[in-house]
């Protein structure tokens, strides 16, 4: 313990050498060029005025943001928020249970199970989404099986149900990994201790596993919620594009409508939402650790 603390302490005091600064240049340059600069341009554009062809002209206006209140846009925003929330909750529940299942397997089996979760990533996302069209469509296996029982004409393509299934499929691994990571670090004897002290399956989870894996759960929520709203392939392919998500909106604004300032404004909203939810999660993590330290005072 002391050795580690001292090491960290020393690390802090050490002055960065000139050589190491030089080594950092490629990293800093790519972050600035690929991250900060484009972001800055998008932010700037969101306050710009568009010319007749959708190009950026100078000017400073809040009109782009004001227009977002228009039902056309706000409906998409609300629908995305709702779908993002739904997908996050479902992903967290299934991700939690799956992670718990994997963690309770013998260590040498866990790697294999995780591999099963990863394998789909080796195929292109677009290809996998097309696969879902086949699975859920009129010529797919589900329709075939139902056909045997005399239920003809099954197809959930296009529909919002298919979108939800597609989103769940895409984001489940993203949810599983952070939860698995934090669950794996929980000492298995804690579960036994809780059982020994009278806790049921639900009690063990509510009082021990859930609170201890909350960093992973919050991380998973973050990685699922915002990206869900930015997805644009799934609503088009599986939902027929009837109910677009924010991601679709951005694409449409930039390409079809050629309204760059509006597209930039929507992008900024998504970014702010992301930052806000990150701040919220950070706050929740901080609260939960301080709250635990003070619970007893109020009870005693």
């Amino acid at each position: 313990m002391t050795a580690t603390t001292r090491a960290i302490h020393l690390g802090r005091q050490e002055k960065p050498k000139r050589g190491s600064l030089l080594l950092l240049i490629p990293g800093i340059a790519s972050v600035v060029l690929l991250g900060v600069l484009p972001l800055f341009i998008v932010a700037r554009n969101s306050f710009a005025v568009a010319d007749d062809y959708g190009g950026i002209t100078d000017g400073l206006t809040f009109e782009n943001y004001a227009k977002l209140l228009d039902p056309v846009y706000s409906k998409t925003l609300l629908f995305s928020l709702g779908l993002g929330l739904l997908n996050t909750v479902v992903c967290l529940v299934i991700g939690y249970l799956t992670s718990y299942y994997i963690v309770s397997r013998p260590t040498n089996r866990q790697g294999f199970l995780l591999l099963l979760v990863i394998i789909p990533f080796w195929t292109d996302f677009l290809v996998r989404t097309f696969a879902w069209i086949t699975i859920l469509g009129s010529g797919g296996p589900i329709a075939g099986i139902l056909g045997i029982f005399g239920i003809a004409g099954f197809s959930v393509i296009p529909s919002n149900l298919a979108v939800v299934l597609g989103l769940l499929y895409s984001f489940l691994p993203t949810a599983i990994f952070p939860i698995y990571a934090s669950m794996r670090s929980i000492d298995p004897s804690l579960k036994e201790a809780a059982t020994d002290l009278g806790a049921s399956w639900w009690g063990v989870h509510r009082r021990v596993i859930l609170p201890l894996s909350s960093p992973g759960i919050l991380g998973a929520a973050l990685l699922t919620f915002i990206p869900t709203m930015g997805v644009f392939v799934i609503p088009v392919l599986l939902g027929g594009g009837k109910d677009p998500l924010v991601g679709n909106l951005i694409v449409t604004l930039y390409t079809e409508f050629r309204n760059q300032p509006m597209g930039a404004a929507v992008s900024m909203v998504l970014l702010v939402l992301m930052l806000a939810s990150m701040a919220l999660v950070g706050l929740a993590l901080k609260r939960s650790s301080t709250k635990r330290a003070t619970t007893k005072k109020t009870e005693a």
Partner: peptide, 20 residues
């Protein structure tokens, strides 16, 4: 286990780290 009138003291203590 949870309905047996006995308790175990673990070698690793198994105290819940998130609780006081």
């Amino acid at each position: 286990t949870r309905n047996r009138d006995l308790n175990m003291l673990f070698q690793s203590y198994a105290l819940f780290p998130h609780l006081t």
